[in-house]
Design a protein around this nucleic acid. Structure first.
Lengths: 194, 194, 194, 194
DNA sequence: CATGAATGAGAGTTCATTCAT
DNA sequence: GATGAATGAACTCTCATTCAT
């Protein structure tokens, strides 16, 4: 079970991602992935033992890609508020479920699969996002764009609101206006907070 | 064919609620509910056709009970900030998953079952909570307890944060300290917001 | 399990007949009959143990009624050919499935339930019909209406054709024209047979 | 997903045929066929979705085989009356239920499953048999073996009698003598009809 | 490595039959 | 007599997992 063909593994993970994006986690069967990959049953089991294992690898890949995207953005010469705006735009896309997006699958998976805190990729992603936002706010404050006496608190608050928007979008439906309004509300807090 | 024994129906719904609270929605089988109720296969089908139907009734019951709880609290002579504190305490309990609590089941159900906006019980509950919080904030402002120039915006923001906390609690785990900290952050905003 | 209420038993049998006429035998459940009778489950079991038992009684009743109908026709002052024509008209109705009619139910029942020859109501009915037709033909010959040197053979042949038409009507569909044509073919044989 | 192993499919169809021959159509469950084939539940579902589907394929196979048998007989150098006698001998076997024979199953199936006339295999088989018999009679007339001024009518009549015998054999039981007698009756008509 | 037929556990559903009231 | 809730066996269908080729 070492490496087999890395390329084939990548190929399976890409196709599997689409499947999870469409069907969430729990409803996905090995057959779904076999169909999506046009691969044999045995062939799939050669690389992965379960949908769980596949999903975790899909997630790992996603995490790496997300980090790359962020790194790029951060290295460009931009102000804190610019990058924050960019970040929020990305989040808006995810909230509104534009494009393939694993939100529901992630929720379904981690509801049922308790992962040790330290290794929990959702937690890791969340915390790293908080730190980045905190830094962006601090940059913004330094640049005179923002007023904020608790950048960490504000960053955390922002992440919880975004998470709340994400889950509400999936359970009750949310319009773009609603997302805009909530983001605006938070930005106002950064500009005028005493 | 409608009711059979109302008491038995209630009994099944109570037991089923425990099951949903423990296993979410998607993983629950009729067998699980049969086991929990200690009744026969056919006996259960006498009252309900599917886990979906059972879940919807459990939800309806929950909604009624929640409304009652709120009504009681509201009729007591208390200031806005007191009731808000009470509400947040309840929410904290739910977030931290003390007692039987359907959070995960609700999420799982509404991820998979798209319900027309107007009839979506999650949406209805959310919106009614927003209105109540808005009112409480306005009461608090009137009483000089709060400072807030956008009570509706603040109420909405608060609800999204709470929703974010709920979902994060389920996916990554959250400590009581974290919840306290986030609530405190929001309350500070109500006290000192310019 | 003696008589209970004879009237109720009759009532159940009437309703049950409709059910068998609509659904055949095998697909009929006790529930179907309960629904048709608007009676309680236990109530039905008080009178009958199974659909099989109900069906046999329905059949017995049918047999009696059929005999009565025939007796009436025979007592009227008519020629053999008139009564034969009347008989064939009735058969045509049954073949074409006009009105409530147990054809399919009878087939389904006796395919699956082997009954001793002597007690088999279908056989009894068939044989008595053969005898009557034979007599009618002989009457017709006597009256100079028919020419036939083997009235028993002709009667049997006629009954098999009718049975063939009945079963074909149910399995492949048959038009009124087809029935008319076949009856005409047989009648011609009775008029011109050498 | 179409064929898997053709041989296995054939094997299942053979075993299934026995089952249908013994139990008719309606009472046959997938379990019955599983038992007869000594395969696993999932194994059967790999090839067929329902007893209905299996039955239709069994029927198709039967039809093909029957056609072959007929073709052979027809190509041999024989007179019309010889082939007709052969045909009737085959029919006699079927009527008397010698060997595996789907009569009851076919009846049960087509009682419950209304098939468009044009596609109804029973109808198709019936009509093609009528045509063949008509031809055989005409051949016999030409050869001076038969006297018949309405070969089509006679052929149809013969088929309905045979159908009547078949169904009576299943519902009330019939002896070989009865079949012989009825066939003889029809043959006499072909020899001496005016 | 790769294939896909085969397996069997388990979920959903229906119904004849019983029995306390 | 009459009721209808309760039972459990039997059916249908699906899927993760294995294994001979």
């Amino acid at each position: 079970m070492g490496s087999k063909s890395i390329q084939k593994k990548q190929y399976i993970l890409e196709k599997a991602k689409s499947v999870f994006a469409q069907k969430g986690f729990k409803s996905v069967t090995m057959q779904d992935i076999i169909d999506a990959c046009q691969i044999s049953r045995g062939g799939l089991y050669l690389y992965f033992e379960s949908t769980r294992e596949i999903f975790l690898e899909v997630l790992r890949l996603e995490g790496e890609e997300a980090d790359d995207t962020f790194s790029e953005a951060m290295t460009e010469e931009s102000t804190g508020s610019d990058i924050l705006a960019l970040f929020l735009k990305e989040q808006k896309k995810e909230i509104l479920n534009k494009g393939e997006n694993l939100t529901v699958a992630i929720y379904e998976f981690f509801f049922a699969n308790k992962v040790p805190k330290k290794e929990n990729p959702v937690r890791i992603q969340f915390n790293s996002a908080v730190k980045i936002i905190q830094q962006l706010i601090m940059d913004g404050v330094e640049a005179g764009e923002f007023i904020c006496d608790d950048p960490l608190g504000a960053a955390r608050n922002m992440m919880y609101v975004l998470e709340g928007l994400k889950v509400c979008a999936q359970t009750m439906g949310i319009t773009e206006e609603t997302v805009n309004r909530e983001i605006l509300y938070m930005m106002k807090g950064l500009i005028s907070e005493s």
